[in-house]
Design a protein around this nucleic acid. Structure first.
Lengths: 361, 361
DNA sequence: TTTTTTTTTGTGCACGAGCACATAAAAAAG
DNA sequence: CTTTTTTATGTGCTCGTGCACAAAAAAAAA
């Protein structure tokens, strides 16, 4: 509760008996300061403990920053509406700092639209980039182009570990597979087989999906495994009839399935098909708190959802970029967000939080 | 991607052909403006869409705010070190806005120190208050004193619903009891009894603990309950020998206990005692990600921890008060944070997030 | 009408930092 | 020992808003 006032440049100048301008040059390493004077000022700064007033600095700089995002369009995939909420919230908090967000959307599962939007993004000449690269190969060439620009780059949702220098905020996909394993282990009690279901296309070009697969397998590798694990992929998931037929065939050949792991946010499609088939006692583990999924969770049709917090991904993604722009420190690093186990009893609390406007500072 | 510039007071003044000062008076309802002029300016504001630049406003106001906190001392109870992390983080983000945090700590389970610190707090004449009132009766009288001050007041961790006007950020205790019920239901599979254990004193003066109790009971009320639920309270929990004896007696009289629900963050004491007694196969559900608890979770000695996110409670608590001070809007409301189910497979992700410095905007 | 009072409107400085430019001091060239 | 060049240091304006005070206009009193 000491009553010390915040130290300003002016205070340092007075203490070191120089002008504000000289202190300013020392602080920003602009040179043009006599060595002995610089030493003296450095000492004073150390002594008084200066930290810049970001408020005043922002106002004085009067600079505008443009953050460009490159994400899948929410129109095609409900999941991608969630990061938007976080981005919006971050923008609200930082628009007074001169931050603008220019959004570029590509069509999920359409490589060309990715390339196209990527080029448009680069043409827009942004000060920082937030992206989720859903295509492994194409994203590599994008990274290469961006590398020369020397601007902060951060990826969410899809971690490409090949490029360590690119920082990432999002789920630890491998670990989420392991977590799913644990959940099945608790819920199934050594009875029945587990079906791992990829509802979507070109899994081989999406490393994060394969990581989940490995995670689940590895979980059971460490113990004497009482479960068989089946892997299936189905592209035309939105066609419920075809999905139903597809599942029917699986159940015909494998009678013992007790749990199904849907490796993305589309478990609500699966449930529709299972309803048609009349399967009610399966343990379903899926991802993400889409409205549809949550409803089924409450009805007991889905047992567990693993939340990868896409809202927070968007929110922290932008805020981190803002931070690195304003403070021009490259603090960007990789951050794995928590994986929340969501059941009927706590889903509302997660949902409320997602709707609730957070503090807009 | 429209290129519209941010509207300033100056722009409104120009458009309405008045001076900045007049616009300022309209914006702040300071009066002293001719009615027709005010109407004109209001229309222009509407037309151009002004929103104040909080950066410039903060700088110009040059005002210092003092937020006082009244929380249990972390020295007595590790749990209370966690909100501190969140408070520290919030302070870092908002100190440039002239925010100061003055902390008052009371000794847990010592009513007098609460009253004493509460008085000191009021004497310090704060601009806003963050508190956790662990004593039901005493907190009521504190609320009464504070009500006259007419300053923002927000409570965390302990919700006193009797006073609806006091906003709250924290766990939904009742729901956390229900969640524990569900967890036992999944893990125990209709076998054995559940011991609900309060490690601490004067539960009758701590409504949030009683809410957890009700939640657990109610969960099983809705279904044909295969479990017996025992309730026990033990005050001298830090004395492992005595705790061990206490538990020994319980197990002697009740042979069928399969799960233990520790209603606060002190499950690591329980595990110490259970080790001495040689019980290894019980399903333990506790609260909060204390270092000690997390270690036991990874070792498999604790099965589940429910995270009430005390860090976020402290963080959002302060940030909300900051928000209401800076924007002088009373946006304070009650927010129930998510209840995270934490197991060995996701605990590290929660811990990493707690250590990791978040964006300091 | 003139003077006084009241109401309305305009202006200038401050907040703290950034940056351009002016001035002063020291070093190099004449 | 000047003059020129280089280096070092100081000053003044800017950002957008808030607020005190000055100035002007209108209304009331003389």
């Amino acid at each position: 509760m000491s009553k010390k006032k915040r130290i300003r440049i002016k205070d340092i100048a007075a203490d070191a008996q120089v002008s504000r301008g000289t202190v300013d040059r020392v602080l920003h390493n602009r040179g043009r300061v006599a060595p002995d004077v610089k030493a003296k000022i450095d000492k004073t700064i150390e002594k008084l403990g200066y930290s810049p007033n970001i408020i005043a600095s922002t106002l004085a700089k009067n600079k505008e920053y443009h953050i460009a995002t490159l994400l899948p369009s929410p129109d095609m995939d409900n999941y991608w509406a969630l990061p938007q909420i976080g981005i919006e919230r971050a923008l609200k908090a930082s628009k007074d700092f001169g931050i603008h967000v220019d959004q570029f959307f590509y069509i999920m599962e359409n490589v060309n639209s990715f390339k196209e939007q990527a080029d448009l993004l680069i043409q827009s000449n942004p000060d920082a980039i937030l992206l989720s690269a859903e295509f492994y190969r194409e994203s590599l060439s994008f990274y290469k182009k961006v590398a020369n620009l020397n601007i902060p780059l951060l990826s969410i949702n899809t971690h490409i570990p090949t490029l360590e220098k690119v920082s990432y905020i999002g789920q630890h996909s491998y670990q989420s597979g392991k977590l799913a394993g644990r959940i099945f282990d608790i819920a199934l009690r050594n009875k029945g087989d587990i079906l791992m279901l990829h509802l979507g296309s070109s899994v081989d070009n999406a490393p994060h999906i394969m990581d989940k697969e490995r995670g689940l397998s590895d979980y059971f590798q460490t113990k004497t495994n009482p479960y068989n694990i089946l892997k299936e992929e189905f592209e035309d998931y939105a066609n419920i009839d075809r999905l139903t037929t597809f599942l029917y065939n699986i159940f015909e050949s494998t009678k013992n399935i007790a749990g199904i792991f849907v490796t993305n946010s589309r478990s609500y499609y699966l449930v529709q098909a299972l309803e048609l088939l009349g399967y009610h006692d399966l343990c379903i583990v899926g991802f993400d708190l889409l409205e549809e999924n949550c409803q089924l969770l409450k009805n007991g049709k889905i047992d567990f959802l693993i939340n990868q917090d896409p809202i927070k991904q968007g929110n922290l993604g932008i805020l981190n970029l803002v931070d690195s722009l304003l403070y021009q420190r490259s603090n960007l690093k990789t951050l794995y967000l928590p994986l929340d186990i969501v059941v009927a009893e706590n889903v509302d609390l997660y949902m409320q939080n997602e709707i609730e406007t957070f503090v807009t500072l």
